[in-house]
Design a protein around this nucleic acid. Structure first.
Lengths: 108, 108
DNA sequence: AAAATATACCTTGACAGGCGAAGTATATGG
DNA sequence: CCATATACTTCGCCTGTCAAGGTATATTTT
């Protein structure tokens, strides 16, 4: 990972929700996907990822169920809920806004 | 303040360095300036601001001296150091990079 | 004259998120 | 049979933010 964690902090949840917008998935795969999408420049740490799942489920933004794999390790799948979809859009809006704000503030 | 702190987190130091790029200044004024620049949408909390000053000075990115006001409250002025200027440019680069990364990851 | 407000700085303790480290379990390739 | 890949989980530390409280001086209001 080459990007500072504090830059991503506050976006972890949105990144996960974004992935689930394209359909149910599970932890390991989501992390793989992030790594691929960024050309290996970024990946969530496992502890961070699974902590985020707990938090998002707690908040009602995602729900989970065990997959019925008959081979390999068991997988816990996650679905985004309607509240999660709404939250995702809200977060996107915040990103747009904060992006402009930060740009204003860090260019001297 | 209407913007989530976690969105700004990781940029506090850069915001301060950016301000000092335009010349020496002191805490209260910098915070005012941030508030004005963002139309009141964002302001650093005092504790956060002064913690950041300590951190940046510790790291050698800024240096401080007491102003010689003969009226009003005393002011501690801050200067950006050469190392701070370098760090500022590095941070700007990180911002460009992470901005692209986040954009990639949060748009489904 | 007293009280309120603005300027200006500082410290303490709590909290939340990220993450290193370690552990559990199954399947596959050498 | 052992290493590696897949897949999930928990514990405890670290760091940055911030609410709350404090100090001190000058101006404005009552």
């Amino acid at each position: 990972m080459s990007i500072a964690s504090d830059m991503i902090r506050g976006h972890t949840d949105t990144i996960i929700l974004a992935h689930l917008m394209s359909g149910d998935s599970y932890g390991y795969k989501i992390n793989r996907s992030i790594s691929e999408k960024t050309g290996g420049q970024y990946e969530l740490k496992e502890a961070t990822l699974y902590t985020a799942f707990r938090r998002l489920e707690q908040l009602g933004f995602i729900s989970s169920y065990w997959g019925d794999e008959n081979t390999g390790a068991r997988r816990r799948y996650y679905s985004i809920t309607p509240a999660g979809v709404q939250e995702y859009h809200r977060m996107l809006g915040e990103w747009e806004q904060s992006q402009r704000l930060i740009q204003t503030l860090i260019t001297s």
